[in-house]
């Protein structure tokens, strides 16, 4: 093989170059697909509207019952926690405190806990 002619190797080199170019193209295409996928999954996975809806429901509860503890309010509280666990797979809990003076207005401290296995949300809000 001593007299092997190496003149033709540029063809293989060209082939390699083309292959490399394709490889990078594929990388870019893959990334662009990932952008859309992660956005959509991020939006679907993060329960933004669920948490907002739960807050509204709890504020409605506070409007209606305040911090009283009686069978009626306990029943509504149990509705929210039981149905959340059963239908939304989320552990939900909330407490309503006695009204405090917050810049001249009597507001109740409300703590909200939400956990659906992926997203955990805790909040203390004066309402």
């Amino acid at each position: 093989m001593a007299c092997m002619n190496e003149d033709g190797q540029w063809i293989v080199l060209m082939g390699l170059l083309a292959a490399l170019a394709l490889f990078f193209l594929a990388l870019i295409i893959n990334q662009s697909a990932l952008v859309g996928q992660t956005t959509a999954e991020g939006v679907l996975e993060f329960p933004k509207s669920d948490i907002r809806d739960l807050r509204t429901a709890i504020f409605d509860y506070v409007d209606k019952f305040g911090n009283t503890v009686d069978p009626d309010s306990q029943a509504v509280r149990e509705d929210i926690t039981r149905i959340s666990l059963e239908r939304k797979n989320a552990v939900v809990g909330f407490t309503v405190g006695t009204p405090q003076d917050v810049s001249g207005r009597p507001l109740r401290p409300v703590t909200i806990h939400y956990y659906n296995g992926v997203t955990e949300y805790d909040e203390t809000v004066y309402y």
Binding site: S32, A33, V35, G36, T39
Partner: peptide, 13 residues
């Protein structure tokens, strides 16, 4: 890979 279905939807959202 209709590119519109990917990045553009995210931007619109």
């Amino acid at each position: 890979l209709e590119s519109s279905g990917i990045d553009y939807d995210a931007v619109a959202y």
